[in-house]
């Protein structure tokens, strides 16, 4: 494997976004890119990351290799990379370590780290292709704000999506709160758009602890997409350049 990223920033932010949810995981490398799928310890949430080969310049991977990595350790190594550094990830065929090289843009500094790999026996889940009943795109910062505000009211949020908009409702001991985002297009700045497509109304409840955790990915993308169908896990997607993505799946709360 040899994969070079123009800016370490992307990889730093991806790892930062998932490291509190999953601790040990395989980065599955093949000729299509670097993928990761892992559940949290309590099997409530699942993270699915894809960094396509096109995200890297260049990308070369001659055979499928899983790189079993302790994300806490990886975070320590990535601290040494500045956001604007060129990052190269390298590995041998049957590796004991993954090699990370950080180069300053002005090329007067090269840092090289070897991170020990671990054998991780990870369950892979089949994520079915789902035609979601409702899809809502919104500014990622707005979603983060809503989740953190409502977490002060309640542990759970009910998300309801209709043609009029998407509503987040929390009921707690101190009272209730709700936030509605109406569909709208901002002609000056499409990053501010709220876009809803709906085949049938949905209403589901989720743990805000997990949703606020997913929001650690906010810096990766201006917009976030929520995909909902009744009685299936919510998908929260941060789309990245070159068809790469960071997706989180969250099992709904089960009715009263």
């Amino acid at each position: 494997l040899e994969a070079r990223l123009e800016a370490a920033d992307l990889f730093k932010k991806v790892v930062e976004a998932i490291k509190d949810l999953v601790q040990h995981c395989n980065f599955d490398c093949n000729d299509s890119g670097i993928a990761l799928q892992a559940m949290d310890n309590s099997h409530v949430a699942l993270v699915s990351m894809m960094l396509t080969a096109d995200t890297f310049t260049p990308f070369r991977c001659d055979r499928n290799i899983p790189l079993g990595i302790d994300l806490t350790s990886l975070t320590k190594v990535l601290r040494a990379a500045q956001s604007s550094d060129i990052l190269t990830i390298k590995s041998e065929d049957a590796p004991d370590v993954v090699n990370l090289v950080f180069e300053g843009k002005d090329q007067d500094r090269i840092s090289e780290y070897d991170l020990k790999l671990m054998d991780i026996d990870q369950e892979h889940l089949g994520i079915p292709d789902t035609e979601y009943a409702a899809t809502a795109s919104m500014p990622a910062a707005d979603f983060k704000r809503i989740c953190s505000d409502l977490l002060l009211i309640s542990e759970a949020v009910s998300i309801e999506c209709t043609k009029e908009g998407i509503t987040f409702k929390a009921e707690g001991d101190i009272g209730n709160g709700s936030v509605t985002l109406r569909q709208h297009s901002d002609l000056e700045n499409s990053d501010k758009n709220v876009d809803i497509s709906l085949t049938e109304p949905v209403a589901l409840s989720f743990s805000l602890k997990y949703l606020t955790g997913f929001c650690k990915a906010t810096g990766l993308s201006n917009q976030v997409r929520l995909c909902l169908s009744n009685d299936v896990p919510l998908m929260v997607e941060y789309a990245l350049a070159n068809n790469s993505y960071l997706r989180f799946y969250l099992a709904p709360k089960i009715g009263d």
């Binding site: 559940m39 099997h43 409530v44 889940l125 299936v232 896990p233 099992a251 709360k253 089960i254 009263d256």
Partner: peptide
């Protein structure tokens, strides 16, 4: 009260 569902009850193990 409401319980928390598990992701493995929706997505099958490969």
């Amino acid at each position: 009260g409401a319980g928390q569902g598990s992701i493995t009850s929706f997505f099958a193990k490969k």
